[in-house]
């Protein structure tokens, strides 16, 4: 069976034009935007690309971008799948807080750390399934269905932590948040592995095609024999699981479960990462690796602002300016202009 390559190549691209697919891919607006943001960071702070080896791990601003971007990247992986089905999951930030609260409270209560991690992942899965049931069985629109848990979830997390920051010194949880594997921060390794597994799963099996089919037209997909409800349940559960992983990371990072702030507004960053990555909010076409690139663009911008020395009043202005430019570059109109230029240039 050949693998589905729905999004790999614009439909209007002339056939026989695929002589350098890698070069083509690198010319995508997302990679250009990432390169531009990194370049600006380097201009603002010449030591940006310096990476040193310190205490058995890589150390530098570029590593910070990867490390700090990992939670949003992980959320974006799950969010991509949800958005590809024409849904959205607003609850992932709150699920992060719940997962962190559960893990921290369990280790503080004396449970083994491995069990606490499994429990947190299970809770994330259950939260995702809850969303999935609301969407499939009760037929509630995804934005409303997941809003329920977005609002209530943080309250649940606060109930678990009793309103305070639960601090711990458990080595396993701290390793998930701040440890390193072969010199790379653990969150980066987790995010990369998850991205690879998820991409292989959707692109080397028919799963990706089924998700796209449901996203384009759920009824048509069901008539074609796809079990759309089961697939949606699976996708929301996966997003919940991703949120729980991200929650464990941010909790381990600060060695405490901060139910008020963990994952706050990160659902919006995750949606933005997916959109920057080129996945349509109308469902269908999606790309998990490009969403991760989107998350990296957002984080490169955040880190750049931190090291640039701008006063904090400018943070959001700079961020929104850059995002507007990226989204304009990706708009269908800009794409068609670029396409014409490229064809002209290629033929000349």
């Amino acid at each position: 069976m050949t693998r589905p390559t729905v999004e790999l190549r614009p439909a209007h691209e002339p056939p026989g034009h695929r002589h350098r697919p890698w070069a083509e891919a690198l010319l995508r607006p997302q990679f250009l935007a990432l390169a531009a943001v990194l370049l600006v960071n380097w201009l603002l702070f010449p030591g940006f690309f310096t990476i040193t080896w310190q205490d058995g791990r890589l150390f530098g601003s570029l590593i910070d971008v990867l490390n700090r971007g990992a939670p949003v990247a992980i959320l974006a992986i799950g969010m991509t799948a949800v958005i590809a089905t024409k849904g959205v999951d607003l609850s992932v930030g709150a699920v992060m807080a719940i997962a962190g609260a559960v893990a921290a409270s369990m280790v503080v209560a004396g449970w083994p750390a491995g069990l606490a991690v499994l429990a947190a992942l299970a809770v994330g899965l259950v939260c995702g399934l809850w969303n999935g049931v609301l969407v499939t069985v009760l037929q509630i629109q995804p934005i409303i269905a997941t809003l329920v848990l977005m609002v209530a979830g943080r309250g649940l997390a606060q109930l678990v932590t009793e309103g305070s920051i639960v601090t711990f010194s458990d080595p396993l949880l701290i390793f998930i948040g701040t440890g390193s594997v072969l010199g790379l921060p653990t969150p980066v390794v987790i995010a990369l592995s998850l991205m690879l597994c998820a991409t292989l799963l959707v692109r080397r099996t028919a799963l990706g095609l089924l998700i796209e089919a449901v996203g384009v037209n759920r009824s048509a997909a069901r008539f074609a024999g796809i079990r759309a409800s089961a697939l949606l349940l699976l996708v929301y559960a996966f997003a919940g699981l991703c949120a729980a992983i991200a929650g464990l990371i941010v909790t381990g990072d600060i060695r405490g479960a901060d139910a008020n702030n963990a994952g706050l507004w990160l659902e919006l960053d995750a949606i933005l990462a997916v959109v920057i990555g080129g996945t349509s909010l109308l469902g269908g076409r999606f790309s998990i690796p490009m969403s991760v690139v989107g998350a990296m663009i957002i984080q490169a911008m955040n880190t750049g602002i931190l090291i640039s020395g701008f006063s904090p009043e400018f943070n959001l202005v700079v961020k929104s300016g850059v995002i507007i430019v990226i989204l304009v570059l990706q708009s269908p109109m800009a794409a068609s202009i670029l396409q014409k230029r490229r064809i002209k240039g290629g033929r000349a």
Binding site: R68, I165, I254, D258, N261, L306
Partner: peptide, 12 residues
């Protein structure tokens, strides 16, 4: 917040 305090300090 703790998380942002840590991230900003890393940048500094």
């Amino acid at each position: 917040t703790r998380a942002k305090g840590k991230e900003v300090m890393e940048g500094f």
